[in-house]
Design a protein around this nucleic acid. Structure first.
Length: 121
DNA sequence: ATGCTGACGTCGC
DNA sequence: CGCGACGCCAGCA
């Protein structure tokens, strides 16, 4: 395609992260995989680290690791900001881990599909 | 310039 | 099934 691949990696991470529905969570690896570089999951976290003060705000709190653990909570303004934000969305966390992570997990690759179906249910 | 680290994940043993 | 090593690639000492 075009320079899409030339675009900064983190910009795409932001777009995907912003696409995460309210009350849902996803993993770094899922985003990386969605971008085509599944082994670059570290870069996803690196990109999210730069979301500090970006606009529109990037819901980095909705991104956890593959285990559903809030590994990046200490990188927020406050260590409790992540769990608080998740809790505010109805996502309960226990022991730095998202409860029912499997049910709340949202696959970025399903973005188009979800948009089409509009998830009306 | 080189090497280690890091908000991770996968593969190998 | 637990643990170690590798890959990804930008930052930083």
């Amino acid at each position: 395609m075009d320079n899409r691949n030339n675009l900064d990696f983190f910009v795409r991470v932001w777009e995907v992260t912003r696409s995460i529905p309210y009350g849902r969570v996803t993993s770094y690896g899922a985003i990386a995989k969605c971008l085509g570089t599944k082994y670059s999951s570290r870069m996803v976290g690196w990109a999210l680290n730069k979301t500090h003060g970006v606009y529109p705000q990037v819901p980095a709190h909705r991104v956890v690791n593959r285990n559903g653990a809030l590994t990046g909570k200490y990188h927020f303004e406050t260590p409790s900001a992540m769990e608080e934000a998740l809790k505010n969305e109805g996502v309960m966390t226990e022991n730095n881990q998202v409860v029912d992570f499997d049910k709340l997990f949202w696959d970025p690759q399903k973005l188009a599909d979800d948009l089409m179906n509009n998830i009306i249910d």
